[in-house]
Computed example of a mutant assay.
Amino acid sequence: MSKRSKIILAIIVVFFIAALIWFGKKNSNGVVEFETESPFRTTIVKKTVATGKVIPLEEIEIKPQITGIIDKILLLEGAQVNKGDLIATVRVVPNEQSLISAKGRVDNIKIGLNNAEISYKRNKNLFERGVISRAEFENIELTYKQGMQDLKNAQNDYQIIKIGSSGSGASANTNIIAQMSGTILEIPVKEGDQVIQSNNFNAGTTIASIADMSKMIFEGKVDESEVGDLVKGTDIQVSIGAIEGVKFPAKLNFIAPKGIEVGGAVQFKIKADVSLDTKYFIRAGYSANADIILEEKDSVLAIKEALLKFDKKTEEPYVEVLMADGSFEKKTVKLGTSDGVNVEVLKGVTKDDKIKIWNKASKDDEKKVK
C-alpha cells in the first residue's frame, strides 16, 4: 500500500470515528419527559385587599366662640373627658375701635335715658292729678322702660367686647368646653397662642379634637376593577400593622359613589365598622389592611394556573392533555373564578385527564402539539 493510500485511509477512519461520536452524543439526549397533574375539586375564594387606616367613628374639633389668646390649658392630649369638662380658657384682647364705639353707644343711651326719666317723673305727677290721659302717660312710660333696656343691652355688648363675657352666667365665651365625652386626641395650640373664632368666613382655630375611641371604623380604598363586586354588609377582616397576628372582624357599611384618581388609577373609598377587642388599645390613625371576599365557590373542578397557556392568535387559554400513545394534545378550556393560584375550569377537561406540567417547555415542544 502506497503512502498516499495510507493517508487517505487514515482520513476516512478519523471521519468515521468523528461521525460515530456525533451520533452517539445526539442519541444520548433522551426524550424530554413531562410530569402531569389531574384536575381536582376545591373551594376557590376570590379576595382583594384594601389598604387604609383605622379612625374613630365620632371625632369633633373644638373651636373658640371669640377671638383672643389662650390663657390656660387645663388638660393634656390623651386625657379622658366628659361632656361639659373645661379644657382651656381664652383671654380676650379687645379691638380698640370696637371698644370705643361700644362705650360711646352706652354713653349716648345714658343721655337719652336721663331725658326719658325726667319726662317720665314729670308726666307721672300730671297723670296722678288728672291733667293728662292714661294713654298719653303709658306711651311716655314705655319710652322710659325701652331706654333702660337699651342701656342694659349696650352695657352687655361693651362687656363682651372688653372681657368676652357680659358678666351674667359666667364667662361662657372664654371657656373652651368639651362638647362630647371621649379622649382628647390632639391639642394643637399652646398657652399664649392667638386664636380666631369660628364664623361664616373662617373655620376658626382648632383648640382640641375629641373622639370616642370605643367606636372605630376602617377607611380605605379599592380599585375600580373590584368595586363592582363589593356588597354592603359583607363581613371582612381587618389587619392592623401595629398589632401583628391579630385580625379584627368588621362589616362593610359604605362604598363611595364617586371614584378618586390616584396615580393614574381610579379608586373608591370604603368604610367598615370594626369590632374591637378590649385586650388591645387601638390608636387613631393606625395603618390597616382589609381582606374582602369578592366571590367564593365551594367544591368546583379546578387546576393550577401554572398549567395554563394562552394561544398567541386567539389569546384563548389551553392546556395539553396526555393521550394514550404518550403524546400531548392541545385542549382549549373555559375558565371561571380564580384565586391567583387555582382557577375554576368550566369546560375543556375532566377530572381524569392528565395535564402537562410546563416544567421543560420549549418552542420545539409547542410545534409538536397536535
Results as ranks from 00 to 15, higher is better:
Ile8Asp: 05
Ile12Cys: 13
Ile17Lys: 00
Ala19Gly: 14
Leu20Glu: 11
Gly24Thr: 07
Val32Phe: 02
Glu37His: 04
Phe40His: 09
Arg41Gly: 01
Val45Pro: 00
Lys46Cys: 01
Val49Tyr: 02
Thr51Asn: 15
Pro56Tyr: 06
Pro64Cys: 04
Ile66Ser: 02
Asp71Ala: 10
Lys72His: 12
Ile73Tyr: 07
Gly78Val: 08
Gly78Leu: 10
Val81Thr: 13
Val81Ser: 09
Gly84Met: 03
Leu86Asp: 02
Arg91Asp: 09
Glu96Ala: 15
Lys103Leu: 07
Lys103Thr: 07
Asn114Gln: 13
Asn115Val: 13
Glu117His: 11
Ile118Leu: 15
Ser119Val: 14
Lys121Arg: 14
Arg122Met: 10
Asn125Tyr: 13
Arg129Glu: 14
Gly130Tyr: 10
Val131Leu: 15
Leu142Gly: 02
Met148Pro: 00
Lys152Met: 03
Asp157Met: 10
Ser171Glu: 11
Thr174Ser: 08
Asn175Leu: 06
Ile184Tyr: 05
Glu186Cys: 10
Asn199His: 06
Ile217Pro: 01
Lys221Ala: 06
Glu224Ile: 04
Ser225Lys: 12
Ser225Glu: 11
Asp229Met: 12
Asp235Tyr: 06
Ile240Pro: 00
Gly241Thr: 14
Gly245Asn: 08
Lys247Val: 09
Lys247Pro: 00
Lys251Leu: 05
Phe254Gln: 07
Thr278His: 12
Tyr286Gln: 11
Ala290Leu: 05
Glu296Met: 04
Asp298Ser: 13
Lys304Trp: 04
Asp311Val: 12
Lys313Ala: 15
Glu320Gln: 09
Glu329Tyr: 05
Ser338Val: 00
Val341Ala: 09
Val343Ser: 01
Val349Asp: 04
Ile355Val: 07
Lys360Tyr: 14
Asp364Phe: 05
